[in-house]
């Protein structure tokens, strides 16, 4: 019994400690945004890394998700004679839910893990100490541009995922399942509102922040050589993915409850 209580106590202590330290890192990174000198080269490099280099995987997953959504919803809707609603089903699923969530998960796997590995390696090889020794604040130099890149690029990637998802749904719906193209697009226009897209993009901003913060935090505090770096990467992918799904629920319940 005492063993269980001890375990739960340690779990709670760890949760409070890491949440607090992560919050402190976020606050520091935010404050450094406003402290000159501003070096945009670093930010652009991270934007390219998070955004441009994740484009291929996002396009691939987005288009196939749209395609499978069209197939599945067609099978279900056909039973009620509502095949015309395949377009809105695909579009709403993509813009509200799957666009931002899949983009968040894909970027976590590709860029978040790489960020944690890079910062973790820099930590265990004393490169982060070297930055501080050269009077360069590591949070400003390493963390702030990465968080900003995540927040700026995730909405862009989500728009792309939304678009290719709907195109994928259109191709399957119209070309394979013989839904009238006018009906497919017309019904999308009827059902999808600007706030559906906008709210999905707000979600993606949160997901961008979550995945880069978790990656930077775990990499920055990595210890114990190569094994520690590996652990930081694994924790980053698992924790970011879980947090994205948890936050997705709460953001959905807040934004779409009305």
């Amino acid at each position: 019994m005492t063993g269980i209580l001890e375990y739960l106590g340690r779990l709670a202590e760890g949760l409070v400690l890491h949440t607090g330290r992560m919050g402190t890192m976020l606050f520091q990174a935010f404050m450094w945004l406003f402290v000159p000198p501003f070096k945009f080269r670093n930010l652009f490099r991270q934007m390219e890394f998070v955004g441009v280099k994740s484009m291929f995987v996002v396009i691939l997953t987005g288009s196939f998700t749209g395609m499978v959504l069209a197939l599945q919803s067609y099978n279900a809707l056909r039973r009620f004679g509502a095949e015309s609603l395949v377009g809105p089903t695909v579009a709403l699923s993509m813009t509200r839910e799957l666009g931002p969530v899949l983009t968040g998960l894909m970027v976590t796997g590709r860029a978040g893990s790489a960020m944690a590995t890079e910062l973790g390696t820099m930590r265990v090889t004393e490169q982060i100490d070297a930055l501080a020794a050269m009077a360069v604040n590591p949070i400003k130099y390493l963390v702030t541009p990465r968080l900003l890149a995540g927040v700026l690029m995730l909405p862009v990637l989500t728009v792309i995922a939304d678009f290719v998802g709907i195109v994928g749904g259109y191709v399957i719906g119209v070309r394979v399942l013989n839904i009238n193209p006018g009906t497919f697009i017309g019904r999308i226009m009827d059902f999808v509102k600007v706030e559906d897209i906008f709210n999905g993009l707000i979600k993606s901003v949160f997901f961008g922040l979550i995945l880069t913060l978790v990656a930077c935090y775990n990499g920055y505090h990595a210890s114990g050589g190569a094994e520690g770096v590996g652990r930081a990467t694994t924790v980053t992918v698992v924790l970011s993915s879980v947090l994205i799904l948890v936050f997705d629920y709460f953001l959905t319940s807040i934004m779409f409850s009305s």
Partner: peptide, 18 residues
Amino acid sequence: NRIRRRFGMLFQGSALFD
């Protein structure tokens, strides 16, 4: 940081930015 500019440091593993 102002004081650190008066220092240079060579780390054990060199700590060059790779």
